[in-house]
């Protein structure tokens, strides 16, 4: 009953936000639309990270590798004459396919080894993009002529679609058997395998899904900015932003990454104008505060209140 109530609030909130997002281009100027577009991108990326790292506990420091691959694939396909939507679609597909071998290789690694391998993977991506000049034009980057590009509205709705589908994907998986198995892997991988969970297949599937979203987002991003170079898309700073947003909002939850992305993007926008360098330092401080004092993220504040309000809350039967 209480669960239903929470679901109703969630759904209502979701529809409200969607309504605002869908109609925003009607009354917002290009500046705000751009801001929202970036917010949608961060929500999509944060949810993708949430899917692999929040649910399975495999901390990825290199999801931007897939973002970069998607961005380059999208830009190059666009130049090759594909319509923008097909370029995005294929960019996402390439990221997904790439995730299969990479997933099998990296997900054998545990804890710090996985984190570092993923960090290395992003760097390998950046280096390949720099050195494979024939394909990627190297450090000069790729400029996309305006006549090739979709309109701001198209990009806006593409990113909105990505943010929405990433969120729905997480919400869907969270409630399903698949999500349960992923969470079991996070808790105790060996025990999960012992009770019949094929951990390899599950991890690789989650990894693939979590590569698909950054792949698509990268392609849309390339079309939105109209220029990419190796360090702007294989950017560790972007990976860190997704992690901070998820953690700040609440890891492994559906609303956490949205909340986190919203608050961090808002703060960034507020601080950016006044203190360009200090805003990132502020992000660092925020990170420390969350790690030390709020390990469950902002969302845990709401949860805690809800728990206390529940008359029949069964909190812990024994020490």
């Amino acid at each position: 009953m209480l669960n239903n109530n929470r679901r109703r609030v969630s759904l209502g909130l979701g529809f409200g936000l969607m309504l605002i997002a869908m109609t925003a281009p009607l009354y917002m100027n290009a500046y705000y639309q751009s801001f929202l577009l970036q917010l949608f991108m961060m929500v999509a990326l944060a949810q993708a990270w949430n899917l692999i790292s929040g649910m399975t506990g495999y901390v990825s420091f290199g999801h931007t590798a897939f973002f970069g691959v998607g961005a380059y694939a999208g830009a190059l396909l666009l130049l090759a004459g594909f319509p923008w939507w097909l370029a995005v679609f294929k960019g996402a597909g390439i990221a997904l396919l790439l995730a299969v071998p990479l997933g099998f290789l990296t997900l054998r690694l545990r804890g710090p080894y996985f984190a570092i391998a993923m960090l290395g993977l992003n760097e390998v991506g950046r280096i390949i993009a720099t050195l494979w000049v024939d394909l990627t034009r190297g450090g000069d980057g790729i400029s996309l002529a305006p006549k090739l590009l979709p309109s701001l509205h198209s990009n806006y709705f593409s990113m909105l679609f990505l943010a929405l589908s990433a969120t729905l994907l997480v919400a869907f998986i969270h409630r399903r058997r698949f999500g349960l198995e992923l969470r079991a892997i996070r808790e105790d991988e060996e025990a999960a395998e012992m009770v019949g969970v094929n951990t390899t297949v599950n991890k690789v599937m989650a990894f693939m899904l979590s590569a698909l979203i950054p792949g698509a987002a990268g392609a849309v991003y390339a079309m939105y900015t109209s220029y990419i170079d190796p360090s702007s898309v294989f950017a560790p700073a972007l990976n860190i932003q997704m992690i901070v947003m998820v953690l700040f909002g609440g890891t492994g939850t559906v609303w956490g990454p949205i909340l986190g992305a919203g608050i961090v993007m808002f703060l960034r926008e507020m601080l950016w104008a006044q203190f360009p360098a200090a805003h990132l330092a502020a992000l660092g401080v925020l990170l420390l505060i969350v790690v030390l004092y709020l390990p469950g993220g902002i969302i845990s504040l709401f949860r805690a209140r809800q728990q206390r309000a529940r008359p029949d809350a069964r909190t812990g039967a024994a020490p």
Partner: peptide
Amino acid sequence: LLATYGVSII
């Protein structure tokens, strides 16, 4: 990782 990353950004 995140705590030390925070220090790094700062």
